[in-house]
Amino acid sequence: MTTAIEIPSAVTPLLRVTDLNKFYGTRIGCADVSFDLYPGEVMGIVGESGSGKSTLLNCLAGHLAPDAGQVLFDTRAEGMRDTVTMSEPERRMLGRTDWAFVHQHARDGLRMNVSAGGNVGERLMAVGARHYGNIREVAVDWLGRVEINEDRVDDRPTAFSGGMQQRLQIARNLVTGPRLVFMDEPTGGLDVSVQARLLDLLRGLVREMGLSAIIVTHDLAVVRLLADRLMVMKDGHVVETGLTDQVLDDPQHAYTQLLVSSVLQV
């Protein structure tokens, strides 16, 4: 008998979550969540409003302190480290280098009083970039990659449409080549036509950059398009996991069946 953790393949997971719990007083935020995320994988988390998706994501990204459990991340320097117990400076350093976080509301993830170029350049400057010309060049390049015209580089996001703001937020997050991207309802609150364009863009970037990502959404179309694997949450618990197509085409859990059949207004 051995108690060693069995790693199912030769590849080390990028993220290993074990028995994660978060309570708000006596109310469950999320409970007993465990999963592995492998490099290059996109994991979707779906479930109706209040099922604990955002709570889980914020615990993973270090924005909330879980009450129990581990969040192991494969750091560049020291391999697997528990981000829950590491020091805040270390966690913040991850937050501006290896991790990225795309908020549902662009204004939560952008500096609204700073130009588009400054927004994209901030992470570069935070990790030591000190050449204005180079920073600007990279910012312009990234604006192009998210389909924002170069001549908007000095405009503030307040002058942008909702879709443009969200694309700017994505550029600002991806500019330093993060190894893991967290997204909370990235298409939420946008018009349907704008959503479609953003989804296409995200899918292109995910493929092109080989991104590893965790995407929280209540929109099954989003995960159908972006996610390799799915976790279905209900009342803070994971009720079903599997490959996206399998879960959506052949749901096992009664709740997932309801979700997929659109009976639930989610």
Binding site: R96, R111, V114, S115, G117, G118, G121, E122, R123, M125, A126, V127, R130, Y132, I135, R136, V153, D154
Partner: peptide, 12 residues
């Protein structure tokens, strides 16, 4: 990083 954002904005 934010301190240099201010200087970046100045130049732009």
């Amino acid at each position: 990083g934010l301190m240099h954002v201010k200087l970046y904005e100045d130049i732009s």
